[in-house]
Design a protein around this nucleic acid. Structure first.
Lengths: 333, 333
DNA sequence: TTGTAGGCGTTATCAG
DNA sequence: CTGATAACGCCTACAA
């Protein structure tokens, strides 16, 4: 079943069939109608491989994420796929894990599949060491590279980030204004956005003339239970804190559990702020005030930018979206 | 940069280059070595479109799920992608939503991309009305169709399901054995697995000589807050229940919140069982006893079966995996 | 408005 | 073991 069968059955040349297929205006209404009806009758579907061979594209975008089961990333992947499809693109999903060698290997695989562009979801793709980002830059020589929540200044790389610095700054500032003095910053990774948030925290502390303490900046990549224990230990070791701001909702869940365990009242004696405004923030009691980073908006902006890039339109290297704190029951302001 | 360039530079014909490319044994060690080094030098990558055109496959599998941001589905997609890749296949992701027309449309799109098989994740793909499943059967005429958590008896359709009937039966049974008499079954959808669970519940009730009450089987697809309200209303309307078994963890979260709101002690006066053993079951206080349906095992079994199908090996139409109840703090047994 | 013919980069079938 | 050549199915000048 190919273009020749259609051509034969409808009594026109394959060129005309092809024209109909691609909506060329240079076809008479009559033949167009005839060809279409024959296609329908035969149940003809153009072969994407042959088409790809000629046009050197199959309208496919590669989505890379370290772990698509992470709630934030899962959401991003979901919205990306939806919006890509709206624009006629299919999405290759590629879960790389967190090791550099795998990220490199999978990016190569994707390029080997001749995708039209690559979208990297999550700042975990950017290494602190710039050497670790070479593979991304190399890829950008071949196809546009879109990055969500990470920034790399290079031609053909387009980043969509949310303003994590400002959000954390504001959140910390609000905690201070509402009376907290010893604010613990709890984060799980030193990725691009992890650093942004950390800086927001630091600047808010110092600009309020409070002193920055290393003991109040804790990095731990463990799960809820681990986090609960970590906080417990800090507390028992006489670390004083009256607020916790986190880089991920599950860390905030750990904070809630820690407080309950030790009979600490939230938000009276301890304020807690989560990040991502995921379903987790609704599950606990009290429910967690959390920073909403607008995954959907991030995803839409990324796809919109990508479409412009593919259309050779002008697109800025970085697009920044603002975040909003969703106030629930773990904050006093 | 194509096979001709390599051929020319290495002084052999394109046929030989192709043989090297495909690991044919009929190539002398010497020429093989030479060709490989030239490929390396030129940074040659075979064109997947041309290859696809010849072989009529690009080693691609379509994954369809209604909503990849749902924690359970997100996990499944993650494990599927990982295991497909291990077997040399790439995955097209396709989030269809819950409307039949879209499911049909997207399945066509996927087939149009000439995928080697399709995996449907989640029982939401199976309609109660068998007419609504025609599009799946039609697809099975072209490529193997794998279904996770759904069952459709038809050639070239292979289903991997977890034993939701048994799990719900056992869970309900345990609730009864531990003293509960009025058990509320709370579910969110009448999908294939939704029905399985419901039947397990019913049979456990009747086989314990308790009476089945319509008022104790509640279907609601709302979010946590909605569920809390629904339970609240039931309670205020004097509906008596001393245990709640749910078809999804978030429903159980709603149950916890309802209990807290009304000062009901868990598990003393109310036992609660969740489903999916997702991160949500760790977030609440008390933590939720939940049925683990082994998403990873389901995904692995599906991919394993698929690989066998593609290799023309014999595969049963249905593979059933058992579930396990993970006991936490909301049950007395 | 329509048709002819060449090209896209592989694979596979025959000869040698 | 190697090489020439015909598919694979579509797009697109160029010609008519």
């Amino acid at each position: 079943m190919n273009i020749y069968d259609v051509s034969e059955k409808s009594g026109v040349s394959i060129a005309t069939v092809s024209r109909v297929l691609n909506g060329s205006p240079n076809v008479s209404e009559a033949t167009k109608k005839k060809v279409l009806s024959v296609m329908e009758e035969l149940g003809y579907t153009p072969n994407v491989f042959a088409r790809g061979l000629g046009l050197n594209t199959m309208n496919t975008i590669g989505i890379m994420c370290s772990d698509s089961s992470d709630p934030f990333l899962a959401n991003a992947v979901y919205y990306l796929e939806q919006n890509l499809r709206k624009n006629g693109y299919d999405a290759f999903l590629c879960c790389t894990g967190y090791e550099l060698v795998n990220k490199q290997k999978y990016l190569q695989l994707l390029l080997g599949k001749r995708v039209d562009a690559v979208i990297l979801v999550g700042s975990s793709f950017l290494e602190a060491d710039n050497n670790g980002n070479k593979y991304i830059i190399e890829a950008a020589h071949k196809v546009p590279v879109m990055i969500i929540n990470g920034y790399l200044a290079h031609p053909n790389i387009y980043c969509t980030v949310c303003d994590d610095y400002q959000a954390t700054y504001d959140a910390t500032n609000n905690l201070i204004k509402s009376g907290s003095r010893n604010i613990l910053y709890l984060y799980s990774s030193k990725s691009y956005s992890g650093i942004q948030k950390l800086n927001g925290y630091k600047d808010a502390i110092t600009s309020n003339n409070l002193s920055l303490k290393d003991s109040l900046m804790v990095c731990n990549s463990g799960d809820i239970e681990t986090i609960t224990e970590v906080l417990d230990k800090l507390y028992k070791n006489d670390s004083k804190f009256d607020a916790i701001i986190t880089s991920e909702d599950h860390l905030a869940v750990g904070a809630i559990k820690f407080a309950k365990k030790n009979g600490i009242k939230i938000p009276k004696d301890l304020q807690v702020i989560g990040y991502n405004n995921s379903i987790l923030s609704h599950c606990t009691d009290p429910e967690i005030s959390s920073v909403d980073n607008h995954v959907e908006a991030l995803s839409i902006a990324t796809v919109t930018n990508l479409m412009r890039v593919l259309a050779k339109a002008d697109v800025p290297n970085r697009t920044t979206l603002s975040n909003d704190l969703i106030k629930r029951e773990t904050t006093r302001f």
